[in-house]
Simulated scan of single mutants.
Amino acid sequence: IFPHSQGIDKMQRSNVTFVVEFILQGFSDLPNFRRLLFGIFLVIYMNILIGNGLLIVLTKINPALQTPMYFFLGNFSFLEICYTSVTLPKMLIDLWTQKGNIPFLSCAFQTCFLYILGVAECLLLAVMAYDRYVAICKPLYYPIIMNHKVCVQLVIASWITGIPVLIGLTYQIFSLNFCGSNKLNHIFCDAPPLLEVACGDTYQKELSVHVAALFFVMIPFLLILISYVKIITTILKLPSTSGKSKAFSTCSSHLMVVGLFYGSGSIVYLRPKSSHSAKSDKVFSLFYTIVTPMFNPIIYSLRNKDVIAALKKLIPK
């Protein structure tokens, strides 16, 4: 019995191919548009770096922007640069070289940092909503509640809260056996395409991804929702029309960013597996990893008089 079972075990192990690298297929189905896509994504990346970098500089050097709201905005802009830099430079290299090879460990690091920064973004958006809630609903207590120490603590908490869980989740995903194809039909390393090429039962790992997404995406979203329900209720009670429009204008920029980021992210991670398609996943992934960071400085600068005034001081006419 024992020699026979050992022989079967050896045969099973010999059939398992240990993956040392993955191939990101990216835009391989559009070979004639690679150079054009490279140009578009390069311009987008430069806009993200310059636009968000400019917001960071403005919030640091301009005295009028030394408030909690702009402190969070500066940190959010830095986070956007980091978040985009996890995926976009690799995409640009793949488009230019027409190769999508990524070592196993590099793929794991990309996935891990993507999740850590993505969760930090969700939490920071919730913190920014709470800041607006305190400013509009409790204006007299605003300087006391949102003092500098509290602001720093909230930013640090946003950055580090998800780290242990997300490192564990990444380890779970990459501890799977990848005995089939090493081709990922995606633009970067992510759980859905990785689980597709894994062999064996991946149900528990898929469940872990969905639970983590629900916990770290939906809880901040619910906090944002509660904050804005209270904000809108307070605004509607204001006597003057000018007061209402001013209060709404300070929140509208944040709401637009929340809508773009959460809308596209939720479609990728929270919809049923049966409704997934590689093309739609790529498009929605571009939205929350590239489009939102690109529009963040545009939304905040065009709809904010303080930022426009600071820009005019910084850039000579």
Rank of each mutant, 00 (worst) to 15 (best):
91 M>N: 12
271 R>Q: 07
270 L>T: 01
20 V>R: 15
162 G>M: 00
143 P>D: 09
306 D>K: 15
120 A>G: 11
168 G>R: 05
193 P>M: 02
180 G>D: 07
43 V>K: 06
316 P>E: 08
131 D>C: 14
113 F>I: 00
112 C>W: 00
285 S>A: 08
189 C>K: 00
276 H>T: 04
306 D>M: 09
115 Y>A: 04
277 S>M: 04
142 Y>M: 02
92 L>K: 05
193 P>K: 02
85 S>V: 04
182 N>I: 00
262 Y>G: 11
56 I>A: 08
264 S>I: 03
226 I>N: 10
167 I>P: 06
72 F>E: 01
47 N>M: 11
68 P>T: 09
261 F>L: 09
165 V>I: 11
79 L>S: 07
312 K>E: 04
137 C>I: 01
290 I>F: 04
157 A>S: 14
317 K>M: 01
247 A>M: 00
176 L>P: 10
119 V>N: 03
83 Y>R: 14
4 H>I: 12
87 T>I: 12
44 I>Y: 11
13 R>H: 13
303 R>S: 09
156 I>E: 03
68 P>H: 12
211 V>G: 01
184 L>T: 13
105 L>A: 14
244 K>T: 12
67 T>W: 02
82 C>V: 09
127 V>H: 01
217 V>F: 04
95 L>F: 05
268 V>G: 05
62 N>H: 09
103 P>Y: 11
49 L>I: 14
159 W>P: 04
12 Q>F: 08
153 Q>A: 13
161 T>R: 03
292 T>R: 06
301 S>C: 05
278 A>M: 08
72 F>M: 08
31 P>L: 02
40 I>E: 04
281 D>M: 13
36 L>M: 10
237 K>I: 02
199 C>S: 15
138 K>E: 12
162 G>K: 00
309 A>Q: 10
185 N>S: 09
123 L>K: 04
248 F>W: 14
63 P>C: 06
6 Q>E: 14
131 D>S: 03
161 T>D: 02
262 Y>P: 13
289 T>Q: 13
207 L>W: 08
1 I>D: 15
131 D>Q: 13
57 V>S: 02
160 I>V: 15
2 F>N: 14
207 L>A: 12
255 L>M: 11
303 R>L: 12
228 Y>I: 09
17 T>Y: 01
33 F>A: 15
122 C>P: 08
154 L>R: 15
291 V>W: 00
196 E>L: 13
258 V>N: 09
43 V>A: 14
221 F>H: 07
55 L>Q: 08
103 P>G: 07
308 I>C: 07
247 A>K: 10
80 E>T: 10
227 S>G: 05
210 H>I: 12
129 A>G: 12
25 Q>S: 12
197 V>F: 00
186 H>E: 12
17 T>G: 08
260 L>D: 02
221 F>R: 05
33 F>M: 13
120 A>P: 07
95 L>M: 09
15 N>D: 09
260 L>Y: 01
233 T>N: 15
244 K>M: 11
